[in-house]
Write a protein that binds this DNA or RNA. Structure first.
Lengths: 222, 222
DNA sequence: CGCAAAATTGATGAATTTCAATACATGTGG
DNA sequence: CCACATGTATTGAAATTCATCAATTTTGCG
């Protein structure tokens, strides 16, 4: 079904930021993290890509890759060389699909920017979990999913530290929103998570000590 | 020199996120802030555009604007309808220029993401000031420039509060890095600012109390 | 089985937000 | 032109969130 195919082991690099983009890579199996490295050497995970999505599209018209792609687990993907892509791009509906994918990606990235820029840690994590669960569901997966990425990757993506992520997962669990067991995640109360996403004060305090719902609205209201 | 032209007063909207993108707008005079609003209603300034840059390009191929553009001061820009743009895009060198602009913008946005996600407030502000000064210089401006945007806009852009921005500007000034007088900014010690950007511990403490250079490296080293 | 990496949990501290009060600027109408 | 009103900026003090440091625990792997 694909001219050629690439198999990746966990941790392997599919492509590297700055290297010429010679192809795009529809991901067939596994999952990938995309890492951006700024000119000063600061790194951050900018997205997670799941099977079914296409990697490497963001390089506008045959230039260098703008991020590095690293397998989170054993993965495989097709290889569509740029010439082939360019051919396909003549078909209006294919074109439309690609452009739509690009749009969704930039929308996603901007949403991440806003989240990191003005939402609290709990909201950011809730956002990611809902997002992952949504994608998982859309792919027909059951209600329990695997977090292929490490806590560190999650932390990097959300602009947090791994400890904060770990603590929040525990808090979410003890609040009855999710179940986590290392890499195994289950969303128990989607609405509750959505409420946390919308407003961090919906999350009960660490033990049972203090009261709920401080008046402080978060930095920006709708 | 331009088929048609738009004049904007400070605060006026050039285009609005979600509305159909009918043209692109080379900015001739003044400056613009670009604001993104997420589906939950959270807003953030995602970029500042100065005279000479082109607005509205980011809408991939004639769809909706992905941000809103608001004049920071009285401004004027050309209007290049999409059909006209599409014609021009056939010229390879024009195409290349546009794509290069797009690339620089996404690079910039990613750098902002990383900054907000993992750098301290002082570093972020130093980044912005250096950036603004650089653009100002590139346009042949003197060494003193005008911050057209409010402290609030700066704060939104950097994922901070206006108070933090104000305080940091004061600290930068008392550290001899800059001079600020409300909207008037002068970079006094560019190297010093760059050092702060690279490593926030280069910034002296609030008064003269404590020592410099704590051992704590920031979250990510090069 | 044991080692190394990853994750959890706790205690502490620092950076930044929040709240609050004041100063400064800008524009409006008398 | 001044006085006033309003929005914007500065500065301070207190509170909060999150990072850092540190100690275990758990997991995955050779």
């Amino acid at each position: 079904m694909c001219p050629s195919r690439i198999q990746l082991r966990a941790g392997q690099l599919l492509y590297q930021q700055g290297r010429p983009a010679l192809a795009v890579y529809p991901l067939r199996k596994g999952s990938i993290k995309n890492m951006f490295e700024s000119s000063l050497g600061w790194r951050q995970i900018t997205s997670f890509t799941l099977a079914g999505d296409v990697l490497g599209l963001e390089a506008h018209d045959s230039t260098a890759h703008t991020t590095s792609a690293i397998a989170l687990q054993d993965a495989s993907c097709c290889v569509v060389p740029v010439e082939s892509l360019r051919m396909q791009m003549r078909l209006p509906e294919f074109r439309a699909m690609v452009l739509d994918t690009l749009r969704r990606n930039t929308e996603r990235e901007r949403t991440l920017l806003v989240a990191i820029g003005s939402m609290k840690a709990a909201q950011r994590l809730a956002m990611l979990l809902l997002d992952l669960a949504g994608e998982h569901g859309r792919r027909g997966g059951g209600d329990s999913l695997t977090l292929a990425m490490s806590r560190n990757d999650i932390a990097s993506y959300l602009g947090l530290t791994l400890e904060t992520v770990s603590r929040l997962l525990s808090r979410f669990a003890s609040a009855g929103l999710i179940t986590v067991r290392h890499k195994l995640l289950r969303i128990v109360d989607q609405g509750g998570l959505a409420a946390v996403y919308a407003d961090a004060s919906h999350l009960p305090d660490p033990h049972g000590t203090a009261a709920r719902g401080t008046v402080h609205a978060s930095r920006q209201a709708a």
